[in-house]
Amino acid sequence: MTMMIKLNNGVEMPALGLGVFQTAPEATTDAVTAALATGYRLIDTAAAYGNEREVGDAIRRSGVDRAEVFIETKIWVTDYGYDKTLHAFEKSAAKLDVDQLDLLLLHQPVPTAFDTTIDAYRALEQLLADGRVRAIGVSNFTPELLAELRNRTEIVPAVNQIELHPYYTQPDVQTADAELGTLTQAWSPIGGITSYRGGTRPTFADPTILDIAAAHGKTAAQVMIRWHLQQGRSAIPKSVRPQRIAENFAVFDFQLTTEQIAAIDALKTGERGGIDPASISADGFGLIIPEA
């Protein structure tokens, strides 16, 4: 069982998927294979993750029909620009071994070179018009940059993927997304980022979340995933452990109460764990995406 969300262009996407950020290529095939066997049908990757090829291998070997798997990937900033972005699509499609992508995002805005970001998005619009992708969107866009993008392009992003977990909820971005009809998709949806990079207050150990988990006989991660789904967001938790991958998918057999959702909402600190989008530069920190 899974839950589907209809995007603003009518395409249906599974609400819950497997993310493979920071998953080593040698671990990616097994993780995606386990996810597909569990029932996941959305896989989120990115050119910058360096594991698109392994994602494609796992999907191909899984025995699951390609039409049933929703593949989402992202263009890295060093491939921004109209022609470069069109070529970046070709690189990703070749590594994933597909002719069409289900969702293609711009990985980051580049505020200091936003004209290039706009050119990249216009390339996504062309890929959509050509049927090479089924939906397009962005990642880590602020309300101000969403507004500028909307003013300078034709197609409203179907998705804005952002850092979003109980400690960092970005209500201003969620509101801007909702006003546009753009789906908010959460990366680090269970607060993994709060337990690494020197984090000292992990969401997994939060007493409020643990109390709610105990009341439902669920894990803290399952409660946080359910919190996203009940508020209409998409979530892409990551794991390489088959047991944890399965646990994260077992969230369709319980409901959080209104009071429990409000209690989790109240945990927000406003502290970002990831990179501030304003700090992204046109050189992409020196990362060059290799050819297929």
Rank of each mutant, 00 (worst) to 15 (best):
G56W: 09
Y80V: 02
L96W: 04
A88G: 01
L106P: 04
L42Q: 12
D83N: 14
R53K: 15
I75F: 01
T45S: 15
N140C: 01
L42S: 10
T112Y: 00
A120N: 01
T112F: 00
A147V: 09
L86N: 07
G63C: 08
D99F: 02
R53F: 08
F70R: 01
I136H: 11
D83M: 07
A88K: 03
A46F: 12
G56N: 12
A94P: 00
T85H: 09
T85A: 12
V98H: 03
D115L: 03
E72A: 13
A47E: 14
G56K: 09
L42T: 02
Y49V: 10
L105M: 06
D102V: 01
E144K: 14
R41N: 09
F141Q: 06
A48V: 15
D99G: 15
A37V: 01
L86E: 06
L36Y: 01
A113Q: 07
T78H: 06
Y80P: 02
T33W: 05
D130K: 13
Y121K: 03
T45G: 14
E54H: 14
N51G: 13
L128D: 13
Y49C: 09
L105V: 06
D130F: 10
T73W: 00
V133T: 14
D57V: 14
A123G: 01
I71K: 03
D99H: 08
E54M: 15
R61C: 04
E90Y: 03
W76H: 03
T45I: 09
T73S: 12
T85P: 04
G131E: 09
L105G: 02
R66A: 10
I43T: 07
G39W: 03
V138T: 07
T116A: 11
N140S: 10
A67E: 15
A34C: 10
L146F: 12
I136N: 11
N51I: 14
T112D: 14
D79A: 11
A35E: 06
P143Q: 09
V32L: 13
I118K: 02
Q108E: 10
A67C: 06
T38M: 08
W76V: 00
I59K: 11
R122N: 03
V98T: 10
I59C: 13
